[in-house]
Simulated assay, not measured.
Amino acid sequence: MSFADLLAEDRRLVILRALAEDHDFSLNDGTLKRVLAHFGHGVSRSMVRGDLQWLADQRLLRLERIGGGGGELWVATLTEDGADVARGRPHPGVARPAPG
């Protein structure tokens, strides 16, 4: 596994755990970009969106795109499967949380 793969797996776990902690299990891509930066992943919005699309393709979250053009906002909502992975159920491509 490459270093880039390890980083991607960790970013995806951070996203799922952030969604799991939100009161309605839903956050926009701008907020998730700030959350990722707080946890040491200073990445572009396009990279956040790539991870969100990957997680949506895995059915770990649902995506809604609001607006259009340069003002488009992506809203991610955690699915039940995504919540299970955030709590530690193994899923290829997503890091597992540490115990405790």
Rank of each mutant, 00 (worst) to 15 (best):
M1P: 07
S2C: 10
S2A: 12
F3D: 14
F3H: 12
F3L: 13
A4K: 15
A4V: 01
D5G: 09
D5Q: 15
L6A: 15
L6I: 14
L6G: 14
L7P: 03
A8G: 09
E9V: 09
E9H: 09
R11L: 04
R11W: 07
R12P: 07
R12I: 10
L13C: 00
V14Q: 11
V14N: 02
L16W: 08
R17N: 10
L19F: 01
L19E: 05
A20H: 04
E21F: 05
E21I: 02
D22C: 06
D22V: 01
D24G: 07
D24F: 11
S26Q: 15
L27Q: 15
L27G: 03
N28A: 11
N28G: 11
G30I: 00
G30S: 05
L32S: 08
L32I: 14
L32W: 03
K33M: 15
K33C: 11
K33S: 10
K33L: 13
V35W: 05
V35G: 06
A37W: 04
A37V: 10
H38R: 15
H38D: 10
F39Q: 15
F39P: 00
H41I: 08
S44P: 09
R45N: 08
R45M: 08
M47R: 13
M47K: 13
V48P: 00
R49Y: 06
G50V: 09
D51C: 00
D51G: 07
D51I: 03
L52M: 14
L52A: 12
A56Q: 14
A56F: 03
A56T: 09
D57G: 14
Q58N: 15
R59C: 13
L60E: 01
L61E: 12
L63H: 02
R65L: 15
I66F: 11
I66N: 12
G67V: 07
G68P: 00
G68F: 02
G68N: 00
G69T: 12
W74G: 08
W74S: 07
V75A: 04
A76G: 11
A76T: 06
L78N: 02
L78D: 04
L78Q: 00
T79V: 00
T79P: 13
E80Q: 15
E80W: 06
D81G: 04
G82S: 13
D84Y: 14
V85R: 01
V85F: 03
V85A: 01
A86M: 07
R87C: 12
R87E: 05
R87D: 14
R89W: 04
R89F: 07
R89P: 01
P90T: 05
H91N: 10
P92Y: 03
P92Q: 06
P92I: 13
G93F: 08
V94I: 09
V94R: 03
A95T: 10
A95S: 06
A95V: 06
P99I: 07
G100E: 11
G100R: 09
G100Q: 10
G100N: 05
